[in-house]
Amino acid sequence: MLSFTLKRIVQLIPVFIGATLLVYFLVFATPGNPIAALSGGKPMSPATEAALTAQYNLDKPFWVQYGLYLKNLVTLDLGTSFSGQEVRDLLARAFPVTARLAILALLIESVFGIIFGVIAGMRKGKLFDSTVLIASLLVIAVPTFVLGFLLQYVVGVKLEWAKPTVSGSATWGELILPALVLGLVSLAYVLRLTRTSIIENKTADYVRTATAKGLSRNRVVTVHILRNSLIPVVTYLGADLGALMGGAIVTEGIFNVPGVGHLLYQAIQKGETPTVVAVVGVLVIVFVIANLIVDMLYALLDPRIRYA
């Protein structure tokens, strides 16, 4: 297990380099001059423009730019944004907000998704099952920004149960509503996955044997059906954590959350390579680590899986 973990952590290095290289190149190849955009389209003296271009290393060839970026990265210098702020500081401010948002969303989708999924699976074909299935299909089919605005309007504006937008400090409480929107689609998937898995497992031979041993219905469900059914669900949840962190752009936009998605969106618009690459780099690391955790949870849930 230890050597497996170490191996996976070492694998992070090529994955990280590959991903940042790709993103760096994509931003590099994007048409348009970021320096010109910086001045808001107003004319700029050639001397100023040349100085700015040199300051951000934009006059050098691609490989040199990327090499310089990597060199600075070793000293934890992520570069500066066009507005002169350290990218490190920008990230330090935005990342915890998005992390809180994603964790809340993950909690909501796993708790409700699994509970509803188990009930639906155990009562296949009954009213609860059908209702939940139709509702989940609706959630999957309707785009997030529609759901987001709808919930913002109903819960935030009409009912006034929660603040419709998030303040600069983005506290846990303020993030519940955005997290619900962010996690809702995944919740529907978790629910359906759990339901299918439960239906598959509840007719397994060992479940019948467990019943024949004289166990109560509740024990059979929680001890023998649930654990076995969670294996595919955990895989999905792990992969989803990465997607939640990176995919929060729309939700963060709706609720005005000062998170990573917000930061990334602005940076892409400005062609601000250091910020884009830094954000994507962090997301890649989150993705890989989430997958590593999933693999470990997998071994924990299913003793037949052993990593060498």
């Binding site: 397994a204 031979d205 060992y206 479940v207 019948r208 044997t209 467990a210 019943t211 024949a212 041993k213 004289g214 166990l215 109560s216 219905r217 001890v223 023998h224 654990r227 076995n228 849930l301 299913d302 003793p303 037949r304």
Partner: peptide, 24 residues
Amino acid sequence: VELRGNHIGMVPQDPMSNLNPVWK
């Protein structure tokens, strides 16, 4: 539930599929 186990026991057919793979 009262009867199973201590009054009526069962030994099932396929030993490969009748033990839950995730419990000792």
